[in-house]
Write a protein that binds this DNA or RNA. Structure first.
Length: 482
RNA sequence: CGGGGCAUAGCUCAGCUUGGUAGAGCGUCUGGUUUGGGACCAGAAGGCCGCAGGUUCGAAUCCUGCUGCCCCGACCA
């Protein structure tokens, strides 16, 4: 009778997460390839929406797409000392090809700083070649010991921006610009509020001078690193000889950045909005905005309700939301009860469901129901279509407001270690003063927490460090994390 | 990679302790009746019981190895 039960969040959050993915038809474990996943059409459609929006933002900030090889010579990875140390444990290596052992193994890219560095060295000679602003949409592989769908898989899809600049100042500007792009995207498109901040030295990207992050709060109170932007300094420039002649005729190494977001965003999306009935999608990322369910008992009603559905669908498709045509689907399936169809689309997170049955035809109205609950509303058929974009926008805004309210309600300040531990036990975001002593990492590890970041918008709030009691100027964000 | 759990029909699972060659519910297909929050009746199809060995006259069941998934930990987007 009831297909596809979804475990309530309160009962088992991890199981709920998997149920939502399965019932929402987003993805499944690859099962014949360890740690990898198959992203199913509905899940991939969400990724395509993410890509489309981000790509537009990248282009708008002057970047151009390019593509570099999947395989990276092993020697490249080794050229930057910290980089190789950071990535060595998770490299997948190709040792044979064409039936022969290779002279030099290739690694399947875990990220592309090295191979891009190699080519940047060829492309850049003069300050006139700078800045060089490149982005790549690609798959990468990191051999993870523990995987979770979307959040951490052996292979994942992402974009990696790689830029080269003449000065460190320009480089830092770029790092912050792209962090802002990510932050704005997360909030306005994903409706997922984030804390922008700088990573501690021990959570820096391997090979970077500094790493900046956007951190989001999931419904279980854990933090998710949703995107990163790195100031690579001249580390890769030096390792790969990426040099340019300055205006003054001096030879200098370029300053580089890299920044990326991945399919992990979909995991964040799920854990920000979805509920015990399954997937909830913000309209801006929903592959289908409105599903129309015609209700009929016989051929005559079928013909009439479908005709009405077609008419409204056509009106809707002529409209736009968020610079894109509305995506509308009519569920024409026979032999399936309306109720069954409701569940079907609900689990897939479609923002609005429209019901058109004989009663509606009589009244020249339709029944509208928003995915996140509330009663059905009845809207005159004549103007329902033109109301939809506004309704979607309101829904989008409410999802963000709700997520923000949740995060704020679960964020606290702590001024003693006891309070910190107590708050972390309740899975809160905790803001505490810290004077910079690296010993904090180990101490937090004992309670499965980490410094997520040093928030960029932190106000001066001098006081004793929560760890050492030394004078600290600002608070950092501490939380459990994915 | 360590500890724990799991793997039987598309899905959820029973059968395993005490070996005898595979079941239920849901889903699917075919009719018919139905259809405003998971319909009903009748009939049917569907499984190398994760893979490979071993023990045995005989293995879903016992033993070993492997693979994959889930949870916890260590490591990480």
């Amino acid at each position: 009778m009831e297909a596809g039960k979804i475990t309530p969040r309160a009962q088992d959050y991890a199981q709920w997460y998997q149920d939502v993915i399965k019932e929402g038809d987003l993805a499944q474990p690859a099962e014949v390839v360890k740690g990898c996943m198959v992203i199913k059409p509905h899940g991939y459609a969400i990724w395509e929406k993410i890509q489309k929006d981000l790509d537009r933002r990248f282009k708008a900030t002057g970047h151009k797409n390019a593509y570099f090889p999947l395989l990276v010579p092993m020697s490249f990875i080794k050229k930057e000392a910290e980089h190789v140390e950071g990535f060595a444990p998770e490299l997948a290596v190709v040792t044979h090809a064409g039936g022969k052992e290779l002279d030099e193994p290739y690694v399947i890219r875990p990220t592309s700083e090295t191979i891009i560095g190699h080519f940047f060295a060829q492309w850049i000679q003069s300050y006139r070649d700078l800045p060089l602003l490149i982005n790549q949409w690609a798959n990468v592989m990191r051999w993870e010991l523990r995987t979770r769908m979307f959040l951490r898989t052996g292979e994942f899809l992402w974009q990696e921006g790689h830029t080269a600049h003449a000065t460190h100042e320009e480089c830092i500007e770029e790092v912050m610009r792209m962090l802002d792009v990510y932050g704005d995207f997360a909030e306005t498109v994903m409706a997922m509020p984030v804390v922008k901040g700088r990573k501690t030295d021990w959570e820096r990207f391997a090979g970077a001078l500094s790493t900046f992050t956007i951190e989001a709060m999931m419904q279980d109170g854990k933090a998710l690193q949703a995107g990163t932007s790195h100031d690579l300094g001249q580390n890769f420039g030096k390792a790969f000889g990426v040099k340019f002649q300055s205006k003054e005729g001096k030879e200098e190494f370029v300053w580089q950045t890299s920044w990326g977001v991945s399919t992990r965003l979909i995991g964040g999306l799920i854990m920000t909005h979805s509920d015990d009935n399954g997937l909830v999608l913000p309209p801006k990322l929903a592959p289908i905005h409105v599903v129309i369910v015609p209700i009929f008992k016989n051929d005559d009603e079928r013909t009439k309700t479908l005709a009405a559905a077609e008419k409204i669908a056509a009106e809707l498709r002529a409209l736009r939301y968020s610079d894109e045509p509305l995506d509308v689907e009519i569920d024409r399936r026979d032999g399936m009860s309306p109720g069954q169809k409701y569940y079907h689309w609900e689990r897939r997170g479609v923002p609005y469901r429209m019901e058109i049955g004989p009663k509606d035809l009589e009244k020249s109205s339709v029944a509208l129901k928003r995915r996140d609950g509330g009663p059905k509303t009845f809207v005159p058929m004549a103007d329902v279509a033109k109301q939809i974009p506004g309704l979607l926008e309101a829904y989008q805004n409410e999802l963000l407001a709700k997520a923000k309210a949740f995060r704020d309600a679960n964020s606290v300040k702590a001024d003693s270690w006891d309070d910190l531990v107590k708050a972390l036990d309740q899975n809160k975001f905790v803001y505490a003063r810290w004077a910079g002593d690296a010993a904090l990492a180990a101490k937090l590890k004992e309670i499965q927490a980490t410094v997520r970041c040093m928030p960029l918008d932190a106000q001066a709030d001098p006081g004793p460090c929560i760890l050492t009691g030394k004078a600290a100027e600002k608070r950092v964000l501490i939380a459990k994390n994915y």
